[in-house]
C-alpha cells in the first residue's frame, strides 16, 4: 500500500528473535497464534504496548492490525498505556485477604497517596489489584513487574522490596 505518515515503530531485534522462536511452534499459515507472545515480548521490553507497537506486530505476523487490537484489549494483563516504572500487583483474593493483604493496600494508600490501579505521582510505581496468583500458601502475595513473586509480605516487607528495586 501507499506510504502513510502515521507514527510507526520497529520491533527490536530481540523481540523479533523471540517471535521467530515462537513461530516455529505453530503451522506456518497460523502466524496469528504468536500474537499473545509477541505482545508479551513487547510489554516486557517496553513496559507497555502502544498502538504503533501493535501495528508493528501485525505487520511482522502478516495479520490485520485489528486482530492484534482484539487480543491486546481482551487480556487485561496487557498494559495499553504507560504504567509507571515498576508494576506492583497486590493480590486481594480470599487467601491473601485473610492473611493481611488489606494492610498492604492501606499502607500504599497512606504512604504513596494512590489507590490501587493508579500510578504514583513521581511515575515510579503502578500499584495494581490482581486476582489470585496461585500462590496462596505464601499469602499475602505481591507480584513485581509481572515476574517476581514476593510472599508473606507485610507493609514493612513491601518497603524492603521497593528499596531493592531502587538499588
Amino acid at each position: 500500500m501507499s506510504a502513510t505518515c502515521e507514527e510507526t515503530v520497529k520491533l527490536s531485534d530481540n523481540v523479533r528473535k523471540e517471535i521467530d522462536d515462537w513461530l516455529t511452534r505453530f503451522p506456518p499459515e497460523q502466524k496469528r497464534s504468536a500474537t499473545l507472545y509477541a505482545l508479551r515480548m513487547v510489554q516486557e521490553e517496553n513496559g507497555w504496548v502502544s498502538k504503533p507497537h501493535m501495528n508493528a506486530i501485525a505487520e511482522y505476523l502478516e495479520i490485520a492490525p485489528v486482530a492484534v487490537y482484539e487480543v491486546a484489549t481482551f487480556y487485561t494483563m496487557y498494559d495499553l498505556e504507560p504504567k509507571g516504572k515498576h508494576k506492583i500487583g497486590v493480590c486481594t483474593n480470599v487467601s491473601c485477604q485473610l492473611c493481611g493483604s488489606d494492610k498492604i493496600v492501606e499502607h500504599i494508600k497512606n504512604k504513596y497517596q494512590v489507590g490501587l490501579n493508579e500510578v504514583t505521582k513521581d511515575g515510579k510505581y503502578f500499584f495494581q489489584e490482581v486476582e489470585c496468583l496461585g500462590s496462596c500458601c505464601g499469602a499475602p502475595v505481591v507480584i513485581v513487574d509481572d515476574k517476581h513473586y514476593k510472599e508473606k509480605l507485610t507493609p514493612e516487607g513491601l518497603e524492603k522490596v521497593l528499596q531493592e528495586l531502587e538499588g
Binding site: 495479520i63 490485520a64 492490525p65 485489528v66 486482530a67 487490537y69 482484539e70
Partner: peptide
C-alpha cells in the same frame, strides 16, 4: 477479505469497531 472490524475489550466492555 480485509479484516477491518474487530471486537475489542471483553465481557460487558466488548465493542465492535476498528479500534483506531
Amino acid at each position: 477479505g480485509i479484516k477491518e472490524l474487530g471486537a475489542t475489550n471483553r465481557g460487558e466492555h466488548m465493542e465492535v469497531g476498528t479500534y483506531v
